[in-house]
């Protein structure tokens, strides 16, 4: 963890709690905001070189004086719990096995769990970032089970967002703007998934306005939506890394 952001503390503490629950030993290195980029890279190398560490991640966001991408690129790709090292999104593009970014992988699991049809459907993803929109667009457009969809990626360069969302069978919004998707922007019966949240004081506000549930067929719950699946996927990536190191198959 880098710096002292209270939300980051919350997320990191939650990850430690979940690790304890499932029997994974975990610890973190705190890099203070006053540290240098070199010190952050050194912390990453410590994890890389520690034989007791199977996987780790760098909690984002990091303070502005640090280069997150450079730090992620220093992670041993075999220990990349977030699936963000450049090597691993490359494997995703090539449809090869590797750690998947946790938030989009969790959303795919959610679609499976609730039996939301994906094959041949129109999925609209709002947001094109490397942790959600971009990898999710790859996952859902692949030719495989629980994918094979027509995927449209929308972003800040698109003015007429509603023109696209109204034809979507599945909408995933990950822009971090509270209530960005409103009831008049979705078609009846669609699945509306909020991949972005905003803290307003101590309250979490999703990207999808609650009233959208009057039109949609499915909507993520305000609390306990995509977040828990993201953490679960992080631990799944960790255990897969451990098994890979020990050359044991299963759970992939």
């Amino acid at each position: 963890m880098v710096g002292d952001d209270p939300n980051c503390h919350h997320y990191v503490n939650n990850k430690h709690k979940k690790c304890k629950t499932v029997g994974i030993e975990s610890f973190n290195i705190n890099v203070p905001e006053s540290a240098t980029q070199k010190e952050l890279l050194k912390a990453g190398r410590e994890f890389n070189n520690n034989p007791l560490v199977d996987a780790f991640n760098i909690q984002s966001p990091v303070p502005d004086n640090f280069n997150f991408n450079e730090a992620v690129a220093e992670i041993n790709p075999e220990k990349d719990a977030d699936g963000l090292h450049p090597y691993n999104p490359g494997k995703l593009v090539l449809q090869e096995e590797g750690p998947l970014p946790c938030a989009p992988a969790g959303i795919v699991e959610m679609l499976k769990y609730y039996n939301i049809p994906v094959q041949g459907k129109h999925v609209v993803i709002i947001g094109r970032g490397p942790t959600l929109g971009r990898p999710l667009s790859l996952m859902l457009s692949m030719k495989r089970e629980y994918a094979n969809a027509a995927v449209t990626v929308l972003h800040s360069g698109i003015k007429n967002i509603k023109d696209y969302t109204l034809s979507a069978d599945i909408i995933v919004c990950g822009v971090g703007i509270p209530g960005f998707i409103k009831p008049d922007m979705v078609k009846s019966g669609c699945a509306a998934i909020s991949g972005g949240i905003t803290w307003q004081g101590k309250k979490l506000i999703p990207d999808i306005e609650a009233d959208t549930g009057e039109v949609a067929g499915w909507i993520t719950s305000r609390l306990g939506g995509v977040g828990p699946t993201t953490v679960a996927m992080l631990l799944r990536n960790t255990i897969i890394a451990a098994k890979k190191r020990l050359d044991i198959s299963g759970l992939s």
Partner: peptide
């Protein structure tokens, strides 16, 4: 609200149970 709610909690529990089982197997193997 007419929409059904999608909670991530049961999915996370299912995945974490699998992870817990696998972690136990790995520990048993030393």
């Amino acid at each position: 609200m007419s929409a059904k709610e999608m909670s991530g909690i049961p999915i996370a529990e299912k995945i974490l149970n699998e992870v817990k089982k696998e972690a136990g197997i790995l520990k048993d193997r030393g």
